[in-house]
């Protein structure tokens, strides 16, 4: 501060300096409040709860792959689609430990299309084992009672028969996780137990209408990795789906639109809610796979906000031609 300045000018300068600092302080307080606010309170779990962080399960060199198979039969469609992407061996190598995240959300029969179809599970397990996988685990944290969900959806018996383990969620299987830079997934329980030791993660999801988010495909499928009172997230369904897509980087995702649940999702109920759409979509880019799949529900990707959110966050792309999708027609 120069002593040559008149006193008024000094006061003004000092005031501006203080105003600047106070403004910075206010901004810092506001930012801290915005970022650190926690209306829920801490989780019960863990003594000083060690957090877990999901690794990336992406297979090096296999990014930006997308294939679409037109077929009315799941098993041949899956085989053809994988062939188009370089074969199952491009994703699963000998000795791998593979987790299949299915959608077993509801205790409904396979015919209602609200859950991953057991045929798809059987074929994927078989392919993984044939590629030399040491272990295949099928898991989900369903909405309804887990044992009945896996039994009634047919996924449990199908997986076991094909040689996979079925991992039902137990209280010990959940560990807190935080998405770096996330707004919703903070210190939240993640279904981590079944993923221990796993080095490949494949998502198998049916294509469904969803009352809250319009469409439920492979990104929404990761919702089943959350525990706790996760339905609080329904207030920001698009936000949570986009964050889930950032949290989980799978080796491969498969959207089963051979039959799609086009109305009254995600539970459906009537066979009349289903429509044969004869399409199976596979890829390593969740956003692109889902963007193709919502077309089966008569939607365009702009109508499903979480696709844009996830693309903006760098999870994948909505520019489908840039991925050079492979199209396969089976008779």
């Amino acid at each position: 501060m120069s002593p040559l300045l008149p006193p008024d000018e000094m006061d003004r300068r000092d005031f501006l300096r203080r105003a600047g600092l106070a403004g910075l302080g206010l901004a810092a307080a506001g930012a801290l409040g915005w970022w650190a606010y926690d209306g829920r309170g801490p989780l019960a779990s863990g003594e000083a709860g060690p957090q877990v962080k999901l690794p990336s399960y992406a297979v090096p060199g296999q990014d930006r792959k997308l294939a679409l198979v037109k077929s009315g039969h799941r098993a041949p469609a899956l085989r053809a689609g994988l062939e188009a992407l370089g074969g199952i061996k491009a994703f699963v190598r000998s000795g791998d430990q593979v987790a299949l995240k299915v959608n077993a959300a509801f205790a409904t029969p396979p015919a209602l299309g609200a859950t991953t179809h057991p045929e798809l599970v059987t074929e994927m397990v078989r392919l993984c084992l044939s590629a030399g996988a040491r272990r295949v685990v099928v898991t989900d944290n369903p909405i309804n009672d887990p044992a009945s969900c896996f039994a009634l959806s047919g996924i449990g018996p199908a997986a076991r028969t094909a040689g996979a383990q079925v991992a039902l969620p137990s209280a010990e299987a959940f560990r807190p996780t935080t998405l770096a830079g996330g707004r919703l997934i903070k210190d939240w329980p993640l279904l981590y137990g079944p993923l221990k030791g796993i080095n490949k993660l494949i998502g198998l999801a049916p294509v469904k209408d969803h009352h809250r988010s319009r469409a439920s495909v492979t990104m929404k499928n990761w919702y089943g990795l959350l525990g706790g009172r996760r339905n609080v997230f329904h207030q920001d369904i698009n936000g949570i789906i986009a964050e889930l897509a950032r949290l989980v980087t799978p080796s491969l995702v498969v959207a089963d639109g051979v039959v799609s649940l086009v109305k009254n999702g995600p539970t459906g109920g009537s066979l009349e809610d289903l429509r044969p759409t004869d399409t199976l979509i596979l890829g390593t880019d969740q956003v692109a796979v889902d963007a193709l799949a919502v077309g089966l529900l008569g939607l365009n990707p702009n109508q499903v906000p979480y696709l844009g959110l996830a693309a903006a966050a760098g999870v994948g792309t909505l520019d489908l031609p840039s991925l050079k999708p492979v199209r396969v027609e089976l008779g």
Binding site: A105, F106, I143, H211, R212, N231, H234, G265, P266, T267
Partner: peptide, 8 residues
């Protein structure tokens, strides 16, 4: 939502 999560 424990029963019909998504449509509740």
């Amino acid at each position: 939502s424990d029963k019909i999560d998504g449509k509740a």
